[in-house]
């Protein structure tokens, strides 16, 4: 499949959850508390796209396909897009831009603190996701974009600290994240490299 087609396919997929939420909102199908449904929906999709983005490098390594790495930026930007929706829902529909109240929330409530921190860290990644920044920042670009490992951690923590008693859902995200980070550990990479060199030697 040509990469342009792959990209447009993934672009449509990325918009789908937001479109669905909008449609359900319009049809009044989000239940008794639609604003809560939008808040939770946009938040969960942020986390999902962050994890999907992190899955692209391992996917390329295992499959040998090159497209996962070529759509990685778009996926990361979708994570940012849903994070913006999530934050806007909070600022507008939850707090109605009551800045003193929002500031207190950030200071007093650990789950808001880490959520906001995750967004603040995501912002420079989205802003430098262009060719010009890559060239301009050189080696520092790579360093900066290592934040892609930290941000989902904060996202999962944000989720864990939000739930009242049932940790099952955040635990699933935590497990997926742990797996995606584990395959990047030097030990696991060394093993794989050894396998590859054995194969080429043989």
């Amino acid at each position: 499949m040509p990469i342009a087609l792959t990209k447009s396919l993934i672009f449509s997929l990325g918009l789908l959850p937001a479109a669905l939420l909008a449609w359900q909102f319009y049809r009044d199908e989000l239940g008794a508390n639609p604003i809560e449904a939008i808040t939770h929906g946009s938040g969960e999709w942020t986390l999902r796209w962050l994890l999907v983005t992190l899955a692209m490098t391992p996917l390329k390594r295992w499959s040998g396909w090159s497209w996962p790495v070529r759509v990685r930026r778009m996926l990361g930007l979708f994570a940012f897009f849903y994070a913006c929706l999530h934050l806007m829902t909070y600022l507008w529909l939850d707090q109605f831009f009551d800045w003193p109240e929002i500031w207190l929330d950030i200071l007093d409530r650990p789950f808001i603190t880490v959520g906001m921190l995750a967004f603040v860290l995501l912002l420079p990644l989205a802003l430098t996701s262009n060719r010009y920044s890559i060239k301009k920042l050189g080696r520092n670009w790579k360093r900066l974009h290592r934040l892609a490992y930290v941000i989902p951690l904060l996202g999962v923590l944000h989720f864990v600290w939000l739930v009242k008693a049932d940790l099952r859902e955040p635990a699933i995200y935590a497990l997926v994240l742990a797996a995606l980070l584990a395959v990047r550990l030097p030990a696991s990479r060394r093993k794989e490299k050894a396998k590859v060199s054995r194969q080429t030697a043989g």
Binding site: N33, I35, D105, D108, R109, P110
Partner: peptide
């Protein structure tokens, strides 16, 4: 008296937009 994880100063009445 706030719940440690959210403020209790306002509430959303189900069916209403504002708080």
């Amino acid at each position: 008296v706030d719940h440690p994880r959210w403020s209790q100063r306002r509430e959303r009445r189900i069916g209403e937009f504002g708080k």
